[in-house]
Nucleic acid binder design. Structure first.
Lengths: 343, 343
DNA sequence: CATTAGCACTCGAGCAGATGGAGTGCTAAC
DNA sequence: GTTAGCACTCCATCTGCTCGAGTGCTAATG
C-alpha cells in the first residue's frame, strides 16, 4: 500500500511526464507550489517508488519516468472522473447536430475525437444485430448489367453492380426480387444468409428457371465481404508526438494500421465499458509501446461497437477516459432514440 | 546539344542514382560493363554535364546526382517507350476482372499502382459529364425519417438519410418523387441542379403544398457536397523511400495529403496525355522536392479523370510513365465499353 | 526520527579534433 | 583524345573532453 505522500509524488511525476515527455527530476518537483518537501526527501520517495516498480530511470543518473505499472496504478487509482465542459459540448454538437445517418455520426465522432486529443481514433462497428432489411431492389442498367440496392431500416444502403448472366431474363430477375422482398422484409440482416439458404432456395427454384446462377451472383454481391467497418480519425496525429521521432517506429505503426482485420480483432476483444490497455498489456506487438483505450457503445443490452483511442503510453488518461466515457454514452443514447423512431 | 558520350553518361548516372539513391562516382561508372572509358575521362564528361546544369554535387568532392534539369532531359529524351509485360498483365487483370462498378476499378487501380511502384498513387474522378439519372427513390423509414437513393445509368449509387419535415405528408413526398422521376429520368447529372431550379420548381409548386421545404431538403442532400472524388493508394509507401528519413518531411507530406481539395486542383490542372512534373515544376510548395506524374483517362474526347503517381524526384520514370500510359488507356477503353453497353 | 543540506558520483548531450575513405580536378604522359 | 597519377576536399565516424542535470548517500538539523 502506498502512503499519502508516495501517492502524491507519483501523481505529480506522471502528470508532469505526460505533459512534458521528459524525465522528471526531484528538484523540479520540489519547486512546484503544491509540494512542501525538499528535493532530498523527494529523492527518497522516488527511490521507494522505483523499488516498488512504479517508476523507472532512463539511465543511472536521470530523472524518473513512469513504468507501465505506474501508469496502471495511475489509471486505476488516480484518475478522477472529471468531465471537461468544453469537450462535452463538442461531443454533444456532433451527436445532436442532425442525426441523419449513423455512419456520418461515427465518422464525425472519430474525427473530432482525434482532433481534440491529438491521438489516433478508431471506431469499430456498429455491428447491427437488430438491423432489418427494408427493401431489396434490382435495377437493370442495360441488357447485361444491373445494380442491386439493399436498404435497411436504419437507413443504411448497400449496393453492388453486377453483370446479368445470359441465362437469366429480365422478367425472371424481377420475379426473383419480388419474392425476395416479400419474404425477407423485416428479417434481421445477420439472419439473411441463413434464411436465404433454407426457405428461399426451394421457393425460388419453383418459380425461376436456372435460379442457382443468379442467386450466386446476388449472394456474392452482398454477403461475401467483411461486414465490420473501421473508421479512423487523425491517422497522422501520432506523428506529432515526440515519441515518434525515429522512422522505424513510424513505419511499424503505419504498417500495423493497414492491417484492418487485426485492428478490428483488437477492438472486438473488449468487455462492456471502458478499458485501458497500457503498453505490453496489448497483445499485438506493434503497439506494445502505445496505449489503447476502448469504450463500447450499445443499444439496450446488445453490444454494437467500440470507440478507441490509440496514443503513446504517456497519454492524457484523465481527459481521454472521460472523453470516451461521455462519447460512448452519447452515442448509445442517440442510437436508442434512432431505433425507437424506426421501430 | 549533347554528344553521344555525354548522353550515355548522363543516362547511366541517372539510372544508377534512381536505383541506389547514392551520389554516383566516376570510378563506379567506369567499372560498369557497357562503359569503355576510364574514370578520368568520365570525370571530364561529368564536369561538362555539371557545367551545363544536368548534374549536381552534394559537396565539393562528392559524386554526382541528377539536377532537376537532368531529370527533365532524361524524361524528355531518354525514356524509351518500353512496356513491361509483367506490369501490363497486372493492369489487365484489374481492369477486366469483373468490371462491375467503376469506383471499384478505380480503387483497385490505385491500389495496384502503388503496390507495384512503391510510390503513392492518386486517382481523381471520374467527372461524369455523361452520367444520367436512372432513378430517384425515397424510402420512408419511419414517420420522421427517410432515405433518398439516387442511381445513375453507370450504376453509381448515392444515398442520404434525412428527417422528414413535419409539414410534409407521406403522400406529398411520394407525389414529389414521382414527378421528379418522370421529369428527370435520363437527365445528365451535371445538369440536374439547373433543371431543378427552372422547370421543376414551378411544376412542383402546383402539385405539392409547402413544396419549398422538402425541396430544400432534397437539394441539400445531393447537391451540396463536393462531387470530386479522390482515391489514394499506398499513402505510406513513401515512408520506405530513403529520402524520407527526417520527420519534418514526413509531417509536411502527410499534412499536404490531407488537403484533398488542393490535391484535386493539382490533378485537374493537366492537359490530355501524360505529364511529368519534376520538383520545382510543381506549384505546390509541399511537393517541390517530389515528382508528380499524371495521366488522363477519358471517354470519347471528353476528359474524365486523372491518374497520378507521387514519388521522390528520383523516380523510376521509365517504368512509371509506361505504366501510367498503359493504365490510362485501359481505363479509357473499359469506360468506353461500359458506356456503350449502358447507352 | 523524519527531514534536509551537502557532496561525490554518474550519465548523456554536445562539441572539438583526428582519421580514413571516397571522390574530384588538374597535370603530365601516352 | 585518353588515361594514370597525385594533391586536395569533404564527409562520416570515432575519440576524448567538458558541462549540466540528476542521483545516492551521509551527516547535520529541528
Amino acid at each position: 500500500m502506498l502512503t499519502e505522500r508516495q501517492l502524491l509524488i507519483l501523481q505529480v511525476i506522471i502528470d508532469d511526464f505526460i505533459e512534458s515527455a521528459q524525465p522528471v527530476g526531484s528538484r523540479a518537483i520540489s519547486k512546484k507550489g503544491d509540494i512542501a518537501f525538499s528535493s532530498a526527501t523527494i529523492r527518497n520517495v522516488m527511490a521507494d517508488l522505483e523499488e516498488m516498480g512504479f517508476l523507472e530511470k532512463t539511465h543511472s543518473s536521470s530523472g524518473r519516468i513512469p513504468s507501465e505499472k505506474g501508469y496502471r496504478y495511475y489509471v486505476d487509482h488516480l484518475v478522477s472522473p472529471q468531465v471537461t465542459e468544453g469537450d462535452k459540448k463538442l461531443i454533444n454538437n456532433v451527436i445532436q447536430d442532425g442525426f441523419f445517418e449513423f455512419e456520418q455520426v461515427v465518422q464525425k465522432s472519430a474525427q473530432i475525437l482525434s482532433d481534440i486529443t491529438n491521438y489516433t481514433s478508431i471506431i469499430l462497428g456498429p455491428e447491427v444485430f437488430e438491423t432489418k432489411l427494408k427493401q431489396l431492389q434490382i435495377l437493370t442498367l442495360s441488357s447485361q448489367t444491373a445494380v442491386a440496392i439493399l436498404v435497411t431500416n436504419t437507413g443504411h444502403v448497400e449496393h453492388r453492380s453486377f453483370s446479368i448472366p445470359e441465362e437469366i431474363s429480365a422478367s425472371d430477375l424481377e420475379k426473383m426480387v419480388n419474392i425476395l422482398n416479400d419474404r425477407l422484409h423485416g428479417v434481421p440482416i445477420v439472419r439473411l444468409p441463413e434464411k436465404l439458404n433454407t426457405e428461399i432456395v426451394d421457393l425460388m427454384n419453383k418459380y425461376i428457371t436456372d435460379f442457382e446462377k443468379s442467386y450466386d451472383y446476388l449472394k456474392a454481391a452482398f454477403f461475401n465481404d467483411n461486414p465490420v467497418k473501421l473508421y479512423f480519425g487523425g491517422k497522422t496525429n501520432i506523428l506529432m508526438q515526440p515519441e515518434f521521432k525515429d522512422i522505424d517506429k513510424i513505419r511499424s505503426f503505419y504498417s500495423m494500421m493497414e492491417k484492418e482485420d487485426e485492428i478490428a480483432n483488437l477492438l472486438k476483444d473488449t468487455t462492456n465499458g471502458i478499458k485501458v490497455r497500457i503498453g505490453h498489456e496489448n497483445k499485438v506487438d506493434a503497439i506494445k509501446d502505445l496505449s489503447l483505450i476502448t469504450a463500447t457503445y450499445q443499444l439496450n443490452e446488445e453490444q454494437m461497437g467500440t470507440i478507441a483511442l490509440l496514443g503513446p503510453t504517456r497519454m492524457e488518461y484523465k481527459r481521454v477516459v472521460n472523453l470516451l466515457n461521455t462519447l460512448s454514452h452519447e452515442m448509445s443514447d442517440a442510437l436508442y432514440m434512432w431505433y425507437k423512431n424506426n421501430e
